[in-house]
Design a protein around this nucleic acid. Structure first.
Lengths: 211, 211
DNA sequence: TTCGGCATCATCCGATCGGCCAATCTTTGC
DNA sequence: GCAAAGATTGGCCGATCGGATGATGCCGAA
């Protein structure tokens, strides 16, 4: 890795963004884009084929079936390290990605220099988080206020897809009463009183991400 | 403009994406990024100050108050031409931008070459649309299926914000009965039977955009 | 001009939702 | 081991929602 710099695999579904990032990265002597992928399947193949040091992955993969966290998990045991680059900072996304084994989580809001620093740090084996991300996580753990449960996030995500209580119950394999209990908790925690309002508030607070 | 190539103003709220696009564009001899802006206000100032030939604008400006179409309208009478570069292709966004006077509408899904071609074409005074965009517009006009009304789109957008029927009525300055009528029409057109489902379907069909 | 689409409004009724109360069971942590 | 928190379920009731139906006015196309 040291002779030709940090070898990077770019994963993003937007060719234009990909080309931009590649141009940006290749302008630096100590790192190089060795492959690109536009979806999860080709990303997996590229990892196996090119053995990059770092997978720079845009989690905002449009209407992807794979949750992005999935792929991170699939790559985790390979020698490559995954650096997630995304637009959103929903609690569920961050936690899911980190749980899956991502070595870093960066927001596109960050300045370009931060990206390079993050790439180098990740290559050194360190774990990198955007300041905004870090503060989100800190806020999460040290907030006296209401914290939505994992299960409640599930409910919110299904809610955003327009399911009714019966459907919610069937989907989550619980009774309708349980669903209503979760909903009641969510309502009080978010300070709303309708399902639609809950979805709006959840999106507002970046608890879930709009479909 | 001809001595130093096409002068471009980049507008995008993500520094990383901006840096990537700048690196990409500046790699071409016949075009150059002369200024960058991360929000609408600084974009307007930059237009007045640098007089770019083209404003390459990312409409996907996070939680922007300004609709993006607004700014396009504000720039329109200046000598600069606006080329919109975005992720989404909702009917309302496209039509709004074109109505506002954008000279082009490109999806990030497009290959990078298409971006350069679009920049050059826009500089020549032509109007450019992504193939996907064009087909969306064509589909819109030649589709036998259900077409949601302007008013119904309004309802859908408010619906996505979690309002109840009473609130809907107050917001739209009509009676609750009218709201329910609109809802009924929307349900049959989208093939759903709940407000949440309608929101999901509307987002799915790119009629509205998740907030 | 006539027909159809759109927006507007109203009423009735069954289904669903949201609020309130109470209970059991598992996990987590002190 | 015990307390706290989360997940689970049940029932009751008023409020809201969704479906069906009908009616009016406006405007553009045939």
């Amino acid at each position: 890795m040291s002779e030709d710099g940090i070898r990077i695999l770019l994963v993003d579904d937007h060719p234009i963004v990909r080309a931009g990032l590649a141009a940006l990265i290749n302008g630096h002597g100590d790192m190089r884009v060795v492959a690109e992928a536009q979806d999860m399947d080709s990303a997996l193949r590229a990892v196996a084929c090119h053995r990059p040091d770092i997978v720079l992955m845009d989690l905002n993969l449009g209407a992807a079936e794979h949750s992005g966290a999935e792929i991170t998990a699939a790559i985790r045991d390979k020698p490559s390290r995954v650096l997630v680059l995304t637009t959103y900072q929903t609690e569920s996304d961050i936690l899911r990605a980190l749980d899956a084994g991502a070595s870093g989580y960066l927001l596109k809001d960050a300045p370009a220099e931060e990206l390079f620093a993050a790439i180098r740090a990740t290559a050194r084996g360190e774990t990198v988080l955007s300041p905004a991300i870090a503060s989100t996580l800190v806020r999460r753990s040290s907030r006296p206020g209401p914290t939505v449960t994992e299960r409640e996030v599930e409910v919110l995500e299904l809610l955003a897809r327009g399911l009714g209580n019966k459907e919610l119950a069937k989907e989550m394999l619980v009774s309708e009463g349980t669903v209503k209990a979760h909903l009641a908790h969510i309502y009080t925690k978010l300070g709303v009183d309708t399902r639609a309002g809950a979805v709006a508030a959840a999106i507002e607070r970046r608890i879930i991400r709009p479909t």
